[in-house]
Nucleic acid binder design. Structure first.
Lengths: 134, 134
DNA sequence: CCGAATTTGCAAATGACTTGCATTTAACAA
DNA sequence: TTGTTAAATGCAAGTCATTTGCAAATTCGG
């Protein structure tokens, strides 16, 4: 009995990664499903996104917006493995990149002060974007 | 026909507020339900928490933890209406207070730079607390 | 090409949360 | 106090994102 060494980057997984990479901003599973070109079952998209996150190809966070409810949003990991934070417009449902995470010093401080081990930070802002204010 | 001026702070709503106030840390609807002394329907807890948040008596955020899934957590608003941020231990499911939100300057900067109107910020850290590391 | 292990599709299940509706509660005027 | 009426609650069913069990399809390694 041979154990397969590395699970496969299948067509669907690659296509899923392509979709979130091209998008350039966080996408929900439903949005991925709507954009993927391959015929694909919703459950497979969920599994595919799990896979990508597990392998470090994607990051995700759970965001709630009044109009779309609570969903998990995925974005492709950058080459440097930095993660960004985002502003979400509740009106047009668009994301604005707030740039690289700048929480490292703050997190370091908390870790030292409280003896905690931080494995993940979630930060996002919501409100109305410049365009929707007019 | 007279329109009633102010909806009521009913017994259940008051008891709900009491529960999250006494807890001192974020509580999910289920946790409130488990702690409230009055006989009360789950749906009413949800409605009650909505009410409290709408009136400014409570704040909430959605957090995902591997063991408990995705849930909204509520905490009582402080007298100064400051909101805190929290660390959540994925092992013992306890919250540690990270203190007052220190994002104001950062948010102000984003608002000016991007012309956005930020109505809400969500920040929390997850990981393993000091106790659970041993 | 064969056999084992992984992946996918499909359908049902889960779980948080919401909603419609009938009933109960409570505010307000008389 | 009592009747009227809006608001609050209980109950049950519905919604929606996500997960899971299982059978069928795919694919890797030999």
């Amino acid at each position: 009995m041979t154990t397969r060494k590395t699970p496969n980057m299948t067509k669907i997984r690659q296509a899923t990664l392509d979709v979130i990479t091209v998008a350039g901003h966080p996408l929900s599973a439903n949005e991925v499903l709507a954009r993927i070109l391959l015929p694909c079952n919703p459950a497979t998209i969920y599994r595919s996104l799990h896979y990508l996150e597990g392998k470090g190809y994607a990051h995700s966070f759970v965001l709630h917006c009044a109009e779309h409810g609570t969903e998990r949003y995925y974005m492709a990991t950058t080459p440097e493995n930095h993660h960004h934070h985002w502003f979400h417009c509740e009106q047009c449902h668009r994301f604005i990149d707030l740039g690289d995470c700048s929480l490292a010093p703050l997190i370091q401080e908390y870790q030292e002060k409280l003896g905690i081990q931080v494995t993940r930070d979630t930060l996002y802002l919501t409100g109305i974007c410049a365009t929707c204010q007019n």
